[in-house]
Simulated assay, not measured.
Amino acid sequence: MLKNVRIVESLDHEQWDKYVYEHPRGSIFHTRHLVDVFRRTKNYCPLFLAAVDEGQQILALLVSVRVQTLPNPLGKLSSRSIFYAEPLCSDEPRGVEALSALLAEHDSRLRGKVLFSEVRALHAAGSEQEALTRQGYEHNGYLNFLVDLRQPSDVLWGRLTGSCRSNIRRGEKHGLTIEEVTCDKGVDTLYPILNLTYGHAGVPLADKSLFTHALRILQPLDMIKIFAAYHSGQPVGASVVLLYKKVVYEWYWGVQRIKSIYPAECVTWHRINWGQQRNYNFYDFGGAGWPHKPYGVRDFKAKFGGDLVNYGRYRKVYSPWMFSLGERAYEWRRKLTSPTKWLAGRRAPA
């Protein structure tokens, strides 16, 4: 560890807010507000660490979340530590050294509790990559789409594929409407749709407490929006986005497939256009799968004219044989059910 540098688990709120906001890679996933949401969510256990020097200057910062999808005694077999954004550090050598120390501390705490740790990068690699590599994190390609919202709405519309535009028009013609429902009613509309969606897809869904607390903590700060799609007075789709530093982050969504209605296309375009009209800079689709592996969600997201990027993910496996066992158990669970008329979307596919 660097001389006169301490690892801390809390910071002055103003200092924390300022560091994340001013850091070029600072995101909503580094904020104390989302850490608070994660802390209150069932089966989520966040870890916040920062390295500060003798003058209380922040040199590095990380946020991870231990996510457990099965009850004990199968907790470790179903748990992983997720960094929903890359850790932050200053570019000089001291910053990289400090982050390396933070990662070592993180690994020492989580090694016996999770199968692996995964860093889901939101940007092209920076100085944090050196620290991650030093600590044994392996980098692999992972795709995403980013839409530049600084373009006029008609230009964004023109970048959609022709079939996507046609489907949106058909949905509108058949009476599909979309409303903002950023309130308790919105969570009550959103969660049953997500629950059915993820259940049919065989993918674990976060507990409802994630969305309940996200609404209560983030909504007063204008950092969250919930949208619902209705047809004949019934909800047929819903989605939630996170908002920070002029970026709209796609988080979770689900829709019911109804012939000639196309709620998936309609609600996705609505989110993009909503962001453009409110002067956001980018729409982050939240992931598009591993390169060279077929992924239907990537094909869907490609319709919206975003720029395909490959910022990748970093992963560190603590026990290869346990990881292999956990992967087989996960795939077996997924095959117990198969998707039917539901289409799922979330920020961070497993």
Rank of each mutant, 00 (worst) to 15 (best):
E105V: 10
E105I: 08
E105L: 09
D107A: 03
R109E: 00
L110W: 08
L110N: 05
R111H: 00
R111Y: 00
K113R: 03
V114N: 01
L115Y: 01
L115D: 00
F116C: 00
S117R: 00
E118L: 00
E118P: 01
A121S: 15
A121D: 12
L122R: 14
H123P: 11
H123D: 14
H123C: 12
H123E: 14
A125V: 10
A125M: 06
A125K: 07
G126T: 13
S127N: 14
L132V: 15
L132H: 14
L132F: 13
T133Y: 14
T133M: 14
R134C: 11
R134F: 10
G136T: 04
E138H: 06
G141I: 10
G141V: 09
Y142A: 11
L143N: 05
N144Y: 03
F145N: 04
F145T: 01
L146C: 04
L146S: 09
V147P: 06
D148F: 04
L149H: 11
L149M: 07
R150D: 06
R150E: 07
Q151T: 02
Q151A: 12
S153M: 04
D154R: 02
D154G: 02
V155P: 05
V155Q: 12
L156N: 06
L156M: 09
L156V: 07
L156A: 07
W157A: 12
G158K: 13
T161Q: 11
T161I: 05
T161F: 07
G162S: 06
G162N: 05
G162W: 03
G162P: 02
S163D: 15
S163A: 09
S163K: 15
S163M: 09
C164E: 08
C164T: 11
C164V: 06
R165D: 02
S166A: 08
S166R: 11
R169E: 04
R169V: 00
R170I: 01
G171V: 01
G171T: 00
G171F: 00
K173L: 01
H174C: 02
H174A: 00
G175F: 02
L176H: 08
L176P: 09
L176T: 08
I178W: 07
I178N: 11
I178D: 12
I178T: 09
E179W: 12
E179H: 14
E180P: 10
C183A: 13
C183Q: 11
D184G: 15
D184Q: 13
V187R: 04
V187T: 00
D188F: 01
T189V: 11
Y191W: 10
Y191D: 04
I193R: 03
